[in-house]
Computed example of a mutant assay.
Amino acid sequence: MSNPPHEGYDQGYDPYGQQGYPPQPQQPGPQQQGYPQQSPQQGWYDPNAAAYPQQQPQQYPQQQQQPQQYPPQQQWQGQAYGRPLPPEGPAYEPHGYAAPPTGGLAHPTRADGPGAGTATATPSAPVDLSSLPANQRARLEGRSPIIEPGLQPAALTAGLGVLLAGAAALGTYALVVPLVVLQAVTAAGWFRLNGMWPARQGIALAFLGAVTADVALLVAGREHAPAAILGTLGVWVLLSLVLQLRSHADPDTRMQGLMATVASAALSIVAAGHLAAAPDAVTVGAVAVAATVLARALPLPTAASVVVALLAAAGAGIAMGGATGLGTSGAFLGLGAGVCALIGHRAASYDYPSRFVHFTAGVALPLTAAAPAVYLLGRALG
């Protein structure tokens, strides 16, 4: 006898149906396995939620509206300062430091005046070079200017030249006084022209060499002038070398100091050529230098000014040659002294000279550079 089918068997067997448990949901298939993306409201636990609260996706809307604040020309600055390049998109400034600005580029800058302290992306204003001094303007333009001393140093040079001419006419010992002044100004001006100041030891050493040469000339006489001048120069070069070797500065500084000291001592000693030359030659040469520097200071183009200065030197040589007995040969002596004076004037105008340089080297170098020509041409023409 067959048993009747159980009632509800077709609906499936439910062993818990009599206890009132609800049916469980169907388990997901293999394609549904894994960790579903559930929100915090569904009870999903995030261990970093307490330490790092969830941020809103639009935290900096203003920065996202400006996707690129670093222009391509400034990206190299991040590498120059050891920081990585800013990524594409919003501005990236680690630790709050921005890349250093460069002139003429758009970059965040601090506004001056009202509202200072707020960052604004505005291009920097161009520098008005016409309002700067000549030496600063030339430095910004990357060139080495020639700034001439001007009329006042030229007037001082002319006055010192007239003193040399008058003292030479009075006698040898009278000539020593303006010559010592010339040598002192030469020593101080050359160090300052080379950017070394204060350099009391070097200036004192060069001036002491010049005085030694003057004393040697007075003792040995004009007939032994080359030996006195060259001997003093050799001794002072050796002395300068010994003193620089005892210096504790770095090698580059010692070499620069050695060259400046030797050159300053050489120029100061060579200026003693006025004392070694004949008195008439000193008179003609000194007046010719005075006329040269005054003509060179005139507001003329450079080429025209040089021509006028040389003509003035030759004219002064002719005039003073007739007064001293040199005659027309004074024109050659005056022309040679004028050429050397222009060389000294050019040397004092080089490499951003200051006002102090103009009133020391600018005054003395034209007369100092003319001393060899005065001595040599005076012996040849006299």
Rank of each mutant, 00 (worst) to 15 (best):
D250C: 02
V211T: 14
P251F: 03
A134T: 07
N194H: 08
M255Y: 09
Q136N: 01
L243H: 00
M255E: 10
R246K: 03
T212L: 08
V162Y: 06
Q183E: 11
D250G: 14
V242R: 02
A249K: 13
V177I: 09
P226I: 02
E148R: 09
A227C: 07
Q136A: 04
G231A: 06
H248W: 08
I146D: 02
T157I: 04
G142R: 03
D252Y: 02
A199S: 15
A213K: 07
L182D: 10
N135Q: 12
N135D: 10
A213H: 06
L140Q: 11
L164Q: 06
P153L: 05
E223S: 14
M196R: 13
S240H: 06
V235G: 11
A225C: 12
L164F: 11
A204R: 14
G257C: 04
G202L: 08
Q244Y: 00
A165K: 06
V219P: 14
G234V: 06
G202Q: 09
P145V: 06
V177C: 04
P251L: 07
A204C: 14
S247Q: 13
P178V: 00
V219H: 14
A168Y: 12
I147C: 10
L230S: 13
A167S: 15
L156E: 03
G221R: 08
I146M: 05
T212S: 10
A155E: 08
I147E: 10
S240A: 15
L245W: 00
L205Q: 05
E141R: 13
A167V: 12
T172S: 09
H224W: 12
A199H: 10
T157Y: 01
G195I: 04
L160H: 06
A199E: 10
A213Q: 07
P133D: 08
Q201M: 01
S247C: 08
A174P: 15
A228C: 04
R254D: 00
S144K: 03
L243K: 00
W197K: 06
W197C: 04
A169R: 13
L208E: 12
P198E: 05
T232A: 13
L175C: 07
N135M: 04
